[in-house]
Structure formats: C-alpha cells, structure tokens
Design a protein around this nucleic acid. Structure first.
Lengths: 221, 221
DNA sequence: ACCTGAACACCGTTCAAGT
DNA sequence: ACCTGAACACCGTTCAAGT
C-alpha cells in the first residue's frame, strides 16, 4: 500500500515556492473564504512559519494581487463565433464567472488594478471587439473601464448569492427596507419595488452590458 | 484662561452613545483612514475599553454600515434647476463627492447595501428624474443600480488620488504596465495607451454617467 | 441596562540568527 | 539567498463581574 517510489516516506513539506504559496492560498480561498487567507494560515498549510513567506510575497496587498492574477488565468479567450456583441458577452461572461465565484476577489479587483498578462489579453480582446462593432477608438479606450467596472460591481453585489446557490437573496435586506419604506415619502420606490428587485444576478449583469454597449454607440467624446 | 463654566474640570469622557461612537469613528476616519477605525481605537478615543462599544454596535460590519449611513446624510437633494440630465449629474455628483472623499467607504458601499433614510431619498430623486427624462419605469428600476454602481466604482478607483490631490496618479501602475506591454502581443493597448489613461477621475465619471443615460434611453427590457 | 477588566484566539511584519 | 523562531504591536469578540 505504501508508495515504493522514493526513500523519503512522502514529502509532507511541499517545496516553498511562489507558485506553492499561491496554490495553498487558492485552496484556502476556495474552502474557507478570503478571511482565512492569512499569512499565518498559509504558512501553517505549508508547514512553516509566517516569516518564511516574505521571501516571495512583499505584503498582504501583494499576496492578494498574486491571487487575483492566478484567477485571471481562468478567463477564456473569445471563441471567434457570432456577432461582435455576442463575443463581448462571451468574454465578459467568462470574466464574470471567475468574479462571481470569488466575490471577495472581485472586491480586491476594484482596488488592486490587475496588471498581469491575462488582464492585458482581456483588454486587448475587448478593444478589438468594440472596434469591430463600430465604437470609436477614444470611446472604447474609456469605455473598457466602464465595462469592466460594471462586471466587477455586479460580481461584488450578486456574487455571494450566486456562489451559494441562493438565487439572488442578497437583495433581501433591500427588499425588507422597501417593504417598510413609507409610501408617501417614497412613492416611486414603493411603486417600482418589485421591478427593482426582479431578475437574477446574471440576468441583470447581461442587461447591464447591453445598456453600456448601447450607450457607447450613442455617446461621443 | 481656565473655563469657569462648570465645577467639573472638563468632561474628558464624552457620553457613551451611539452618536458619540460614530462621531469618534468619523474623526478617526478623516484623520487616519479606515484602517485605524477599529473597535479598540474608537474605545480609546472615548476613554473606555472595546467591550463597552458592543452595547451600541453589533460587530465591525454594523459599525461600517452606521458610518456609511452618517456620511450619506451629507448628500445634497437636487436643486430643481436645469434639465433632467443636469439634475441627475447634480445629484450623482453630490453623492460622488462623499464617496470620492472617503474611497474606503465607497468600497464598503459595494458590499453593505445601504438602507438608511438618505439612501432612499437619493433613489427616489433618481427615479423621478429618469421618468422625467423619458426612461421607461422598468428600465429605470434596473438602471438605478447601474448608475449608483458606476459612481461607486469610480470613487473606489479614482477616489484616493482625488482625495490626496494627486491629479489622478492612481493609474500610474497601469501606465507603467502599458509602457512595458509587448507591442506585438497587444497592439491596440499600446496604440490606445494614452487615450486609456487620459482624463481626470471626475471627468471620466461624468462621461460614464452620460454613457449610461444614453444606454438607458436606447435599451429595452 | 449599561459598563468594565481581563482573557481568548487570532492578526501582519520585523529581525537577528542560522543554513 | 533562503529559512526560521521569537518577538512586537496590534486586532475582534466574549464573558463574568460589577454598577
């Protein structure tokens, strides 16, 4: 039953490398959430002390940036099928899947501007597709930011619920508040309450992308 | 030189109330940033121990929500002058000032859906103005989210620089990365690099609102 | 009901010392 | 250069005891 491969029983200590650290971090992230992804926790998983990590990671912000970069590698490139708009939905959808799965990472994305290779590839694809769709260059240059921020915001807001299979209950506190809102002070909120809370996260996300694309097609600089 | 008003030398211990706690938190926030707004730090400012705060505050998330609510009280109502579009810019601009001043709070806004009175007033105004502008009700109901998320994202991304009077240098890391980006892999990014980094935070924010408004006028549900 | 001191179970980061 | 133990300076939160 024992592996005959090596004289060493088994390497209980995986080699301490940048990649190993990020791998360990990703496991903890997936299993216990970002709150548990601490230097001490990662070090413990790697059977060492927290000080050892500082050879490969400058500080917590750097750790987060590296985790983000690793996750961005899971975004699919566009397939080349369908209209430019379909392909934008495809690319942003793939980006959204990553962020919806790790909403806590989406939050980091807002602060830590990712600058890795995969992020560049994503932007390049989008610029290409917008140009194909007839969006002027200067408009696309600023529009990208809007598009990506919208995906991120959507993931931060609705991601938790989707990740937990909660069909969008993250809006529950808002729903409660709307139900309680005094009718005479906020007639429109009360009247549109149902509409405001309707739709699933992904549904609204997709619609939001269309609004943005239509806006870009109808706005100059 | 000494105040003759009261027998008590001076009330070195301000009364321990919910309002007092939030006030103390806001002072620390303004002077030292959100990172220093901790239970222990607030308690120290109020001359007591951290445990005492838990009568008024459930936990850190609740503390943040209460700080957010207090800041939302500083958003101006619309003046009633100008076109519906001008007034939307006015209301969102006022909201943006608060968030740009406290970008760390803007980050909280993404997670903690505010449900206070001032937030409702803001939404009610926006629904009214959109309706006046001819945006259909169901479109407005979902559009509000897009509009507010856009302001928040803008504040999170560009707020730090504006707050510190740094004329938009928060994009510096991206600029460096673009300069280093290999030309043959990312021709569009290199070509549009200057455009992508142009404009100040508020400029781009205002433009983004216009894109969104135009998109809402050209999208159905 | 409100307030407190003390404790529990954690953090990030640094640094001198080892290999 | 890499790795480590130990320490420093913090955290949030709970709880029994006081008023």
């Amino acid at each position: 039953m024992k592996s005959p491969r090596s004289r060493r029983e088994r390497p209980s200590k995986p080699a301490l490398t940048r990649a190993g650290i990020i791998d360990a971090a990703l496991v903890i992230l997936a299993e216990e959430g970002l709150g548990k992804v601490t230097m001490r926790r990662i070090a413990a998983a790697l059977d060492t002390g927290p000080a050892s990590l500082y050879v490969y990671v400058r500080d917590t912000a750097d750790l987060h940036a590296q985790i983000l970069d690793a996750l961005l590698g899971r975004v699919d490139p566009p397939s080349g099928q369908g209209s430019w708009r379909d392909r934008i939905h495809e690319v942003l959808g793939s980006y959204a899947v990553v962020l919806f799965t790790y909403p806590e990472i989406a939050r980091i994305t807002m602060t830590t501007h990712p600058t890795g290779e995969h992020y560049f590839a994503l932007i390049e694809s989008l610029l290409e597709l917008l140009s194909e769709g007839g969006v002027r260059d200067e408009v696309a240059a600023w529009g990208i930011d809007l598009l990506l921020a919208s995906v991120t915001a959507s993931a931060v807001e609705h991601g938790d619920a989707v990740a937990k299979g909660e069909n969008g209950n993250s809006l529950a506190p808002l729903a409660d508040a709307i139900a309680v809102a005094p009718q005479n002070s906020y007639p429109r909120i009360v009247g549109l309450g149902g509409e405001m809370l309707s739709g699933t996260g992904p549904e609204r996300f997709r619609w939001g992308v269309d609004v943005l694309l239509n806006g870009l097609l109808h706005t100059t600089r």
